[in-house]
Design a binder for these strands. Structure first.
Lengths: 212, 212
DNA sequence: TATGATACGATACGTATCGTTTCGTAATTC
DNA sequence: GAATTACGAAACGATACGTATCGTATCATA
């Protein structure tokens, strides 16, 4: 499973300050209710009010921990998403890319996690504060993992050391997110295979196909 | 400029029915106010109420024409976006793809049109009715234009006739939209060049790089 | 020229949801 | 035991929504 910086843990490990400590039980009840309501209603129709009701918790208890619906859902989402993302290590780049893309498709296609991912990406475009959290705790860490796949292939000598790692990843996941968000075509397994073949060919040193 | 099915025109050409006809002047004032407010406030903070105020028009006059903020903004957006998209015809695939991608980047990078595009894509994930309009009047028509670029290259014999046109386009624009929406990296001209080179190489018949 | 249908701008309305604040109570530190 | 903070519950002001109604204006038809 993918590991992330312990930003969440750091936030949870509040200073042992005075006064009544925050209830771990409430926290779990809130995250649980969020998970349920994401499944029942989806991101858009989930309200903090109903989460509070479902968790038998005051709204203020939620707002004390999460400033917005987006950050609350983000925390609920992260665990599910990362837990489902396998770390591929098949010994060759093609195998790694295909396993990674297939794993991503399996995680998002027709699942609550996938619908929540879509809802979060939409919300990120509307809320600059959430966008920051999103970049720091999702985009960058996940990309760091994926980047490793490419760099390993460079080390093995499979692809040129001049390979643009970021653009390679943008092509792979860009195509996938594109289909997820525009839903003009399905995320079939054939799609995964053809995309990976495409990228593998594109990674080859510029020989046969360029200028005369 | 890109041409689209005359869905808008058809809708505008209302049956010559009885009663007072809808005021073209009001329609233009609404679209104009929308354009102004998109620039001043952006998609999220634009309200129908303020559009009505700015256009000196009753709210009902807006709702009579557009059921939601999304559809109103969509109409305002379409004109600007399509007017800025050049139709590339350089004589070879690489030139066409590069010109198209560069044109897209010029249209969206740092512009109101780009910010509105992001806002609309976010809204599309939240409103199924808008999603339908989006697919029918944006995604499909634009893709039809782009598809033509690839098909022309097939006709010219530049690339195999077995080329998967959709996946080719998903790679090209997927990467671009990915950077637009995740804003983890910039849409530089180098990005455009490398992406196109990648795809051109990937389009080559499967020779050197695949299985033993 | 009169009639009926529809759109007009203006504005009031009830609803929904937000995020905040205020209760009195409970838990923990100093 | 005093100070401090969190708790659940509930009321709150604010904002924007989408609808309804007002009297007026503009059209097709007869």
């Amino acid at each position: 499973m993918v590991e992330l910086p312990a930003a969440a843990a750091a936030a949870a490990a509040q200073a042992p300050g005075r006064g009544r400590p925050r209830s771990e039980q409430s926290r779990l009840a809130i995250l649980d209710a969020t998970r349920q309501l994401l499944e029942e209603r989806g991101f858009v129709d989930l309200t903090i009010e109903e989460v509070a009701l479902r968790a038998s918790v005051g709204k203020a208890t939620i707002y004390r921990r999460w400033p917005t619906k987006g950050t609350l859902v983000f925390e609920s989402f992260m665990f599910d998403f990362l837990a489902r993302q396998p770390i591929a290590d098949t010994g060759n780049l093609r195998g790694d890319l295909l396993a990674t893309l297939r794993g991503w498709i399996r995680t998002v296609k027709g699942t609550v996690t996938g619908r929540t991912l879509v809802g979060l990406i939409a919300e990120v475009q509307r809320d600059p504060e959430l966008a920051e959290v999103w970049r720091d705790r999702f985009v960058i860490p996940v990309r760091t993992q994926h980047r490793y796949i490419i760099e390993r292939a460079i080390t093995r000598g499979e692809i040129p050391s001049t390979t643009d790692v970021d653009i390679t990843l943008d092509l792979l996941f860009g195509a996938a997110y594109h289909r997820l968000l525009q839903s003009h075509l399905t995320l079939s397994d054939r799609f995964a295979q053809v995309v990976v073949d495409y990228i593998i060919r594109g990674l080859a040193p510029e020989v046969s196909t360029k200028r005369p």
